[in-house]
Design a protein around this nucleic acid. Structure first.
Lengths: 167, 167
DNA sequence: TATTGTTATACTCTATAACTATA
DNA sequence: TATAGTTATAGAGTATAACAATA
């Protein structure tokens, strides 16, 4: 009856593997929020030009997939539609996103980044990235590579996992 | 006058280094929010037993440094004192933290995790860690090591950076 | 005067529930 | 009926400004 046993007890081999995964999970839960908070704080510190992290991510998404509907935005961000709706509202109010009716399919919105939005996006993105980069400026090439590789894998796995959960 | 030049133009060598740091920064800004959102969503999905990420971090901190004052909590989390005050309020209301006067120094609070808080902490921590671990369960040992190393370095650097900024 | 903590206020993010409008 | 989106409501997290109490 191995099929009924909880996953963490399936086989000896998998105990070892799970254990490594759990150590890894603990590291992630401890350290990722610290990084996240740092990024948020720095983005806020820019004052008027600042965007929240979800706003930034929305602008990035819409600049890569212009004309998307609200549901696509919600799915990309991993939030509900009301949340995305409010988010888009604020961006529209700031003049950073335009919300137009799609001809021939009046249910789905056509969301695009305005020129003002593009400027803002570029500015915020560069300065957020610059501040994070400053934090890493004095690190060795090896350390940077370690971080890059780890973060890339991490993002890949969790993006997959999020999509699996929400489908 | 190299001292006056902006850091990103100091020397040719440092341009190269900065460039690597900037690539790294871009990776971080793209992927870290995805992971963070995943963690938050999973913690919420636990329903009644769920704690927010800041609440979890507060309980962890107080269980490692029992008797801390509110300012210490705020500093550890990287938030302002009003924010920490509200956070602690909610935890006290839930009976997870006790807030007592410190004899002989009535300004500073004495914050401790209650037994109920300890139980809750352990449960949430384990299940959050288990879900994250599940996401990583089928990855190779090499991939896990890559992630662990990257995240550990990342946390280290950003913790340092946060402390530098707030002092 | 400096430190600790709280209150008041306002904003963003977030969800669930209930709704409208379109297909 | 199913999908796209909005509105209403509620609560957490966050900040700034202004305050009280203690040292």
């Amino acid at each position: 009856m191995p099929a009924k046993a909880p996953s963490r007890f399936r086989t000896t081999l998998q105990i070892r593997k799970k254990s490594a995964a759990q150590n890894c999970a603990d590291q992630i839960i401890e350290h990722v929020p610290v990084v996240m908070r740092f990024i948020r704080m720095e983005m806020r510190r820019q004052g008027a030009g600042g965007l929240s992290v979800p706003q930034l991510r929305t602008l990035i998404f819409l600049s890569l997939a212009p004309g998307s509907g609200l549901s696509s935005v919600a799915e990309h961000l991993g939030v509900t539609r009301p949340t995305a709706s409010a988010l888009i509202n604020r961006l529209v109010q700031q003049g950073l996103v335009s919300r137009a009716e799609r001809p021939g399919e009046r249910r789905r919105l056509m969301l695009t980044v305005t020129p003002a939005g593009s400027h803002r996006l570029q500015a915020v993105r560069e300065s957020a990235s610059a501040v994070v980069a400053d934090t890493l400026a004095d690190r060795s090439a090896g350390e940077l590579k370690t971080i890059m590789d780890g973060v890339a894998l991490l993002g890949l796995f969790f993006k997959e996992a999020s999509h699996r959960k929400n489908s």
